[in-house]
Simulated assay, not measured.
Amino acid sequence: MSNIKQEPLVSVVIATYNMGQYLPQAVESILSQTWKNLEIIVVDDGSEDDTPKVMKQFSGNEKVHYIGNKNQGQPKAKNCGVRNAKGDFIAFCDADDLWEPYKLAKQMPLFNNLRTGVVYSEVSHIDEHNSRYEKPPAYARHRGKVTEQLLYKNFVPFGTAVIRRQCVLQNGMFDEEFRMGIDWDLWLRYSLDWEFDYVPDKTYVYREWSGQMSTNYRGRYDHAFRILKKFSSRHQGRLDKQSLKRAWADMHIGKGNIIARQEGTVKEPLASILKGISLSPGYWYGWKSLAKLALRRP
């Protein structure tokens, strides 16, 4: 059992919209932490389901704070939670996901390195019927100064991350200009001044279920281009030019690949992949993608 007097306060932000069916499970999983010095800030972004009703069961718990807002979107809801956080460390949980009880106990000791601003971990999976299953990680994980690696892939599973409050004070909150990719934008900005660390344990349980928003790959890429453009224009002097070129190339090639795969077309994917190759001719990913596209039937 941990000693609460020696533990820094961790504020856990849950931004929720119409997740009354799963929200109590998320809250209970956080309250079950072996790390006891925590608070939970639930920001209800204008839910139209039974969220206010199900949250009444926690009304007597001083660790749980419920904020009901009108619907303004995910970035504003998350920022509301961050603004109301009292802890020196801030963590996140999506309303349909879960924490393992040892999550904070595993991650918090890594903040003993004062250069560390973000500590993230591995994830496991659960379906809508609470059945567990495993998937291999989609991306390689990285530690230390990770700006270059983040330019290519957002390898930090959002809900696993715990951040130092100083990151928010120094590098800002979620950018409310964007509706998607807001965590990637946040990590890019934090990576300029802070180190990232990683716990290989699966401390976060990500739920996949039929009611989730459909995959909007065009929307994701549209926001990714906008995020990278804004980030690179503001911090160009701090970024390696070749890495940035390859990041742009990777983005164009990735977009071409997913459109080809999802829509079965050739013309638009070809233009995207060729654009990527022109930006970074030595990048093998572009030539490999071009070869795969050539084998597709129109």
Rank of each mutant, 00 (worst) to 15 (best):
F158T: 12
T147F: 07
I126A: 00
R165G: 07
F158Q: 13
Y139Q: 10
I126N: 01
F155A: 00
H142C: 02
F158G: 14
P157C: 06
A138P: 09
L151D: 05
F158R: 10
N130H: 15
Y152D: 10
S131C: 14
R141E: 06
H142G: 01
H129L: 12
S124I: 07
G144F: 02
P137T: 06
N130G: 14
P136G: 11
Y152V: 08
D127Q: 13
E148K: 14
R141P: 07
Y139G: 08
R141L: 05
K153P: 14
R141C: 09
H129R: 15
L150R: 01
V162A: 04
F155G: 01
V156C: 00
K145Q: 11
R165K: 13
K153V: 07
R165M: 03
H142Q: 06
F155K: 02
G159F: 06
T147C: 15
D127S: 06
S124A: 13
L151N: 06
H142N: 01
G159K: 02
H125L: 13
R165I: 04
A140L: 11
H142F: 02
Y133K: 01
K135N: 13
V146M: 03
G159C: 10
A140Q: 14
K145T: 10
G144I: 02
A140K: 11
L150G: 03
P157L: 01
T160C: 13
Q149L: 03
P157I: 00
A161R: 04
D127L: 06
A140W: 07
Q149A: 09
V156N: 00
R165W: 01
V162P: 08
Y139M: 09
L150E: 05
K145V: 05
R165S: 06
H142V: 00
R164Q: 10
S131I: 10
E148M: 05
F155C: 02
P157K: 01
